[in-house]
Amino acid sequence: MSTETNPTGGTKRRRRLGIRGREALWGYGLIAPTALGLGVFYVWPVIQTLYVSFNSWGPFGGLKWLGLDNYRELFKDEAVGRSLLNSALYTLMVLIGIPVALVLANLLNRRLLRGKSFYRVLYFLPVVTMPTAVAMIWRWLLNGDFGLVNYLLGKVGIHGANWLSDPNTALIAIAAVGIWASLGYNIILFVAGLQSVPDQLYEAAELDGAGPVTVFFKVTLPLVSPTVFFVAVITVINALQVFDLIYLMMSTSANPALPATRSIVYLFYQRAFMENDRSYGAAIAFLLMIIIVICTAVQFRLQKRWVHYE
């Protein structure tokens, strides 16, 4: 019944809903597009992936219930163990970029420094460059025979490795590129964090005769620790999901360094798409999600020991 044909009924209904009721209806209405989109494209896929991971994926897409078999297989699969190790090593190496970014941001934050915005633009360039291009450029720079990196190393008497096809160096080289590509992003976040530190604190520390190193550790670091924490959480979540860089820099699955660089997401891509075993792929993806949740939870727990909120 519409309000037009029966105005009294309409107002009655309005009164029954009340201010709170109307506010709630507006609330549901405004979140509806996002809730629907996230429901269809994010929540439902998680549920479906969980379901598929308990089945086997037939050649024509039919599912057969397996229970925990895929997960048992995960723990026996050496490739899974190795990929988890690779992802963990990659994550640890990329974390080195955080102190580097913090030191550079601290230098950039000096009040009287000239050319600040010039530096910021240069450091930010890799962030706006697509990973496909970043990987391509660095594959060329790191080329064992004709790469610029080995040429420059040769100038100072170092014989550079075949970086991307040597299993001993490939993951290190990729992690270095990962740091290079995200450094500018972290610097911008740190500079923003540093700017919220009041100048009086620095002045007071200087009057007390503290040197720049002492000031950094006793004043700066505690005050930007919330930003450091945020950057660390984001870095770990992203690094555990590394795929693009490794996929592109290894370039072919025949690269001899692949077993030493294959991340957990790369393995998921191989099993789910190249070998078309969707249910095993789903189990790998779920394992990764559990690991990410655990790592994030651990970081949140540990933050109480070193992060200072005002």
Binding site: R20, V43, P45, V46, Q241
Partner: peptide
């Protein structure tokens, strides 16, 4: 705005931040 279930729905949204995007691709 205040509406029943707001915090629960928001918590579900937050949890989605930890879901690896690759997991979603097939569905």
């Amino acid at each position: 705005l205040r509406f029943p279930g707001r915090n629960i729905i928001f918590a579900v949204f937050l949890a989605l931040l930890m879901v690896p995007s690759y997991l979603l691709i097939i569905p």
